[in-house]
Design a protein around this nucleic acid. Structure first.
Lengths: 140, 140
DNA sequence: AAGAAGATTAGAATGGCTCTAATATACCGT
DNA sequence: ACGGTATATTAGAGCCATTCTAATCTTCTT
């Protein structure tokens, strides 16, 4: 029997981790809460690390990276690299695309059905397509 | 009047640099020749640097980066970042897209007209679209 | 040929990320 | 609940691509 009274949203996050086969450690729970507590977001490792620090969550940078990669491997996050020198992790893992604001470095989701691709070439050499990434760069 | 007999393709490369307003230095000419001598290619800074070394072209790594960025700024190259940790520079600057082979890290061009986008959303806040990048990731 | 603007350079510095290997925690069977 | 084992966390070192610095050299213009 659990002794601690679960705070708001804790249960859901805990279940998500368990369902993915990830041990719900204190750090992973805290980070998952930061990521998934409210609507979708695009977070960098550094950002998440700083948020954790601000909220007095004791977690190392290495653990932030580990958690982000573990979450990604389990399909809880999707990793996006735009320019070399930093990935974002997107909590929206459904089929969709991105606006990239070159000035600010911000990302914004584009719902999957707002871009219609009417011709998609076969992958050469019988390779399997694992993902189609569309990034619309805007200077804003 | 020029004293040196131009070797094959030198003239063209020289003209391209001049036309771009880039001083045709020894290093830039050599690198441009490596890049543009034969059909289109996707080169990393490290790759180009090594090719230069192999051909006894005396050039520093910083200069390779400077040249690649200068060429990109002048529209002679297009920079492509897939995963954080390395850019490629594409000598094909016309409208086209890419296959990315996840296993090998190789890139392959997809002619612009082989992918048809039948709906493209407006950029938010009246921003201008500067580029549309489509990367088809294949596991091959 | 001489001055000014621009380019090159080696090496140091930076930034994002990963590795190491020691310590701590969660899980399972009893 | 207890002990053992697999798994996770950590600080700090290390790595790799890239950029910076500031001294030197080259190209261009006159």
């Amino acid at each position: 029997m659990r002794q601690k009274k679960p705070s708001v949203g804790n249960g859901t996050v805990l279940e998500r981790l368990r369902a993915s086969g990830l041990r719900p450690t204190r750090q992973r729970l805290a980070l998952a809460k930061l990521l998934f507590a409210r609507g979708h977001r695009h977070a960098s490792a550094e950002q998440l690390f700083n948020e954790a620090k601000t909220q007095r969550i004791d977690v190392s940078l290495a653990t932030v990276y580990n958690a982000l990669h573990d979450f990604t491997a389990k399909g809880l996050l999707r990793e996006i690299s735009i320019d070399s020198g930093g990935s974002y992790f997107d909590t929206n893992t459904s089929y969709h695309h991105h606006f990239y604001f070159e000035r600010s470095g911000r990302l914004e989701d584009i719902a999957g059905d707002r871009i219609a691709i009417s011709a998609l070439p076969e992958a050469p050499g019988g390779a399997e397509i694992s993902r189609v990434d569309i990034i619309i760069r805007v200077n804003g």
